[in-house]
Amino acid sequence: MTRASKSSGQIALVVHPDLGMLSRFQESFARGGIITLLARDLPTALLAIAENEITVAVISWRIGEPGDGWALGAALRRAFPSAFVVVLAAETSVPTLQQAINRGFDQLYEESYPAEKVAADILSRPSAPRLVN
């Protein structure tokens, strides 16, 4: 887990197996003044959740194995009801959108969508209340 950037009071957690993607998210969030925590595996991600007040999370649907990102997102939602939680899914389909809703994600992007655009969308989002599933 690595820390980056100066704080605007927000802490983003990015969980993705690919170092290149992590780095692109880190740079994009840094430009928005957000502290960014990076994790390539579940234990590191869980440690980050336990030790920090996460306000934004970007989670790949596949971390160590296919589908484990969904469960991590649900756990993060329970820990931080007001965080903005995004999943990077393999595809946009009814089952993936349904998973995103039912696990408490706020937004779904296909994993091929540019990290910079995902970060830009997140940085410009309006805030709205959400319940915990």
Binding site: A100, I101, A128, P129, N133
Partner: peptide
């Protein structure tokens, strides 16, 4: 999902 429905 955009509306933030809780369950689908």
């Amino acid at each position: 999902l955009q509306l933030r429905v809780d369950y689908f």
